[in-house]
Design a protein around this nucleic acid. Structure first.
Length: 930
RNA sequence: GCCCCGGUGGUGGAAUUGGUAGACACGCAGGACUUAAAAUCCUGUGUCUUCGCGGACGUACGGGUUCAAGUCCCGUCUGGGGUACCA
């Protein structure tokens, strides 16, 4: 009987679905193991071969862990809110819900064909009201919380209100806020607090809530009509769509993730994630330690410019102070004489988009305000400039410029001819005319009390002096910004807030979910309100109060989905405490590295928050994380001779003037074009002619992103159709290390498919199914146990490509030995079943088993079968291999040395001379030094 | 600029702790079976040199450590990813 993969695969897929073979049980004696994939956004294009790469790897681990006696949770779902469905809705008028459902159905069909062992009873969809009810609930908890710096965790806002009522608030003494909208709150007593009206109380509390409505600079994307988070912008344009983004002052819902900056940083040390990913998060959080420092403005009463610096040691090298164009003091500090110039400059700077600013990053611009500050130590007059190299959003929006020791200040000073006093003498030769000395090394000079100190010591002393003089204090700044949470879009979770007399109130739990209302169009209203403003007039809280019109960003639903899988139908909470305590954190999380500074930061933030508030008991969502590499497209090209319909093969194209055209990779096999299929592919190629080499048309090759327009998209369906899903699974693993990005090509797929056929033949060698119950030979057992050992090691270190090689070696050896013995083949099938589940289930059944192979325990290897009687010693001279010598493994190192030294080959090599030294590494190698 | 990860045959890649570089697979060449093709099987395949035995070279490049280096150290080149007037 032939290996009929089509029949086998569809049979077993429906068997698994019917039997619910892979349903996870909530408890029991077995240890738990949670394997999670980053759930996909169901796009209209369906899956391409890159998507399943990570899913196959996680499925292998899930199946392997089941064999190893674990209770495995391996769920899948859909991140089903998002822009593409909405953009499609805008164009076609079709409700995004419908598009999304169609796409999900298609995804599900494709996923099922690959034979994953997901527990589909636990599927979640972020756009399902029963799911987003709890996303909204979490939002409300965050809204109703503040970050208590003394306990270092989030606490109910009621606690803060109680503090206000009893003690009041003093912004000089109490830690106020973190985040983007830091501002002076003044001082009030408990009695005063109680007397404040609702609006005033709400406004004050807004400065503490972890989800807050605040006025701040946001990234505004006019084409998408919405604000975007920093991680949704790449190279100054929106990640989705590539539209320009502007800075804009707006009232927006935000998440105070900055309150968690230090804990997000510290937590990284406890995680088994790749160093590059942790490094990306560290950079994104961007901790920098320094000090704040006030400069008194000359001839202005009690006006100070506060700067943040990491280099207070260079305080005597300050030759000017620069304000961001948006800085609040710019206007009042500009003298009448400079007014026109400053105003022009500020207007210009504000109107430039992020993209433009980035584009001419090297162009130095700035303008003098006409005012001066006094040096805090020596009272010297220092000019105040405005320059757009200073960012309004970081630190205080003002810097003390030390041109001799900071490259940006240096360029600015050089351009405008400002002084560049040197205050650090480097230990090495340095040309201060050419560039700044920015290293934290050298001896302080021209620096009064700091003179003669090393930078390290000067830093300490400078901070000390600044604090004594009460000019500022040691401070930690983070690059991390609070996360903008509102989106002016339709297809997202409604923010569960309504407004009464301009005061925002959260819905209560029993009023959830706040279901997305129907609208006539998915566009903003004529006066620029988000689409939800189009909802009918009955969509109001208690029929009276307006709901918030923005929706949540894409990352909201994905920031806690790993918890919902534990208890997907719970109607009383996000998931029961009992179940979150049982499943705890994700043991293995697999997904793309593009989520390094978005999803993976937000999900850590929400997890920490939920723990602070006692809803769960874990501090981090995922212990171990692997980033699967991207599968790139491998485009094929044909070369049309200019002005003709004649195509020349790649090897001969240099003799002609040609134009390279993408050709569909699905009509190319091993870079050889199927000429007939090409003619049929497009009408204008019907009459194409070809110049062949060796009777073939060889295509050119280029590695590009997989995309429809490049005709290089390969669907997993096509591969499964042609070779079967087991082949697809094995081949995706065989391509190379999981983490590495690699181009897709099907060149080697026949090798993997051939392997499965060879395996099949071990059972069906005679044409019918036949296995022997004879005892296995010593060498057959050695082959088996060597394989078990290697496969176990490979899986444990996620080296899937080498396990496939090891299976091939094993089957090759068994084929050579004509081995069809049950005692060898049964354990082999179990080892292979995580990789190729269909064929192994089928053969397992043929062997007479009535239960799924997934219930069989993983075979243990026995060291005794691996012991060799003899060892093949490589003998080298000065590290270069000369010959190998087979010796009994029982020989000691001394005996081995004696054997080697007396060997003919050795005597011949040494030509009668004595080696200086002989190194014998027992059971490994012999090396002679001559 | 800074940070992270790489660079091994014609190709994808292997070599887990320094110990026979190139496993496994593709491709290619030759052969068997066949009227023929497909499928299958067998042999060879890093480079140079030699009729052959063999010899020399070889993991981006230049140094170093070591009995021994793809692996460790220093420097250079180069590809990919992240990030950036972050004070």
């Amino acid at each position: 009987m032939e290996y009929n993969f089509k029949e086998i695969e569809s049979n077993w897929q429906s068997y698994w679905a019917k039997q619910k073979t892979f349903a996870a049980k909530d408890g029991g004696d077995k240890p738990k193991y949670y394997v999670l994939d980053m759930f996909p956004y169901p796009s209209g294009a369906g899956l391409h071969v890159g998507h399943p790469l990570g899913y196959i790897a996680s499925d292998i681990i899930a199946r392997y862990k089941r064999h190893k006696g674990f209770n495995v949770l391996h769920p899948m779902g859909y991140d089903s809110f998002g822009l593409p469905a909405e953009q499609y809705a805008i164009q076609t008028g079709q409700h995004p819900k419908i598009t999304t459902e169609q796409n999900i159905a298609r995804y599900r069909e494709q996923l099922d064909k690959i034979g994953f062992s997901f527990d589909w009873d636990r599927e979640v969809r972020t756009s399902d009201p029963e799911y987003y009810k709890w996303t909204q609930w979490i939002f409300i908890q965050i809204f109703n919380s503040w970050y208590n710096k003394s306990t270092n965790k989030a606490e109910p806002i009621e606690l803060l209100i109680k503090i206000f009522e009893t003690k009041g608030f003093n912004s000089k003494l109490d830690d106020t806020l973190t985040g983007d909208i830091e501002k002076e709150l003044g001082t009030f007593t408990g009695e005063e607090w109680k007397a404040f009206d609702e609006k005033k109380k709400s406004d004050i509390l807004m400065n503490f809530r972890l989800a807050y409505l605040g006025e701040s600079f946001v990234n505004w994307c006019p084409q998408l009509g919405t604000v975007l988070a920093n991680d949704e912008i790449k190279d100054g344009v929106s990640e989705r769509g590539g539209y320009p983004v502007e800075r804009k002052m707006m009232k927006q819902w935000s998440m105070r993730i900055t309150a968690y900056a230090q804990r997000l940083l510290d937590g990284l040390d406890t995680l088994d994630w790749t160093e590059s990913l942790k490094e990306a998060q560290r950079n994104w959080i961007g901790k920098s330690e320094g000090t704040s420092l006030k400069f008194k403005v000359a001839n202005h009463n009690e006006t100070y410019i506060e700067v943040f610096t990491t280099r207070p040691d260079t305080i005597f090298g300050v030759s000017f102070v620069t304000l961001a164009p948006e800085h609040e003091l710019v206007e009042s500090l500009t003298t009448a004489k400079n007014k026109a110039a400053v105003e022009t400059y500020v207007t210009q700077a504000k109107n430039r988009s992020e993209r433009e600013r980035q584009a001419d990053i090297n162009k130095i611009t700035g303008v003098f305000t006409g005012s001066y500050v006094e040096h805090p130590f020596n009272g010297k007059q220092i000019p105040i400039w405005v320059g757009d190299y200073v960012l309004a959003g970081y630190g205080t929006g003002a810097v003390m410029a030390v041109p001799a020791h900071d490259s940006r200040d240096f360029s600015f000073a050089k351009h405008f001819g400002l002084e560049r006093p040197v205050v650090i003498k480097p230990g090495v030769e340095h040309d201060f005319e050419k560039e700044a000395w920015g290293e934290k090394e050298g001896i302080l000079v021209n620096s009064d009390i700091l003179n003669g100190l090393q930078v390290k010591d000067a830093l300490k002393l400078a901070i000390q002096e600044i604090e004594i003089k009460q000019l500022g204090k040691g401070k930690i700044n983070y690059r991390l910004r609070d996360a903008v949470f509102g989106r002016q879009r339709y297809w997202g979770e409604p923010i569960p807030i309504y407004y009464k007399d301009d005061v925002p109130f959260a819905l209560s739990e029993n009023e959830l979910p706040l279901v997305l209302p129907e609208v006539d169009k998915y566009l903003p209203t004529e006066d620029g309100e988000p689409p939800l403003a189009r909802a009918s007039s009955s969509w109001k809280y208690k029929g009276e109060y307006d709901y918030e019109h923005s929706t949540m960003p894409g990352w909201a639903g994905s920031s806690w989905y790993f918890l919902r899988y534990m208890d997907p139908t719970n109607a009383l909470g996000i998931a029961s405490k009992k179940l979150t305590d049982y499943w705890k954190q994700v043991d293995l999380y697999i997904g793309g590295s593009e989520h390094a500074t978005g999803h993976l930061l937000y999900v850590r933030f929400w997890t920490k928050f939920l723990k602070d508030r006692g809803f769960i008991d874990i501090e981090e969502p995922a212990k171990k994380l692997i980033n699967q590499g991207m599968i790139q497209g491998r485009s094929n090209f044909v070369y049309r001779i200019n002005g003709t319909n004649k195509f020349v093969s790649n090897g001969l194209k240099k003799d002609y003037e040609t134009t390279a055209l993408h050709t569909d990779v699905n009509i190319v096999d091993n870079d050889i074009l199927n000429v007939e299929a090409f003619k049929k592919w497009r009408e204008d190629f019907n009459s194409a002619e070809f110049i062949l080499e060796d009777g073939k048309y060889i295509c050119g090759v280029e590695i590009e992103k997989m995309s429809k327009s490049k005709y290089n998209v390969v669907s997993p369906d096509d591969i499964a159709e042609k070779f079967g899903s087991d082949t697809l699974r094995l081949y995706e693993m065989f391509l190379g290390p999981l983490e590495q990005s690699k181009p897709w090509n099907t060149n080697g797929i026949t090798g993997v498919h051939g392997f499965l056929k060879k395996l099949w033949k071990l059972f069906y060698g005679s044409g019918t199914f036949a296995v022997s119950n004879d005892e296995a030979t010593k060498s057959e057992l050695k082959t088996l146990h060597k394989t078990i050992k290697k496969i176990t090691e490979d899986i444990e270190r996620f080296s899937f490509n080498t396990s496939v090689s090891n299976f091939m070696i094993c089957v090759n050896e068994l084929t050579d030995a004509k081995c069809n013995k049950r005692t060898v083949l049964e354990p082999l099938l179990i080892c292979l079943s995580p990789y190729a589940p269909h064929i192994t289930e089928e053969l397992w059944k043929q062997l007479g088993h009535t239960e799924s192979i997934s219930t069989a325990p993983f075979p243990e290897f026995n060291e005794a079968h691996l012991v060799d009687d003899s060892i093949n010693y490589p003998v080298s001279v000065n590290g270069k291999l000369k010959f190998t010598l087979e010796l009994p493994s029982t020989l000691s190192a001394q005996e081995v040395e004696a054997e080697v030294m007396n060997h003919d080959q050795t005597l011949k090599l040494l030509e009668g001379k004595q080696p200086k030294k002989v190194i014998v590494v027992h059971k490994k190698i012999v090396n002679m030094v001559v």
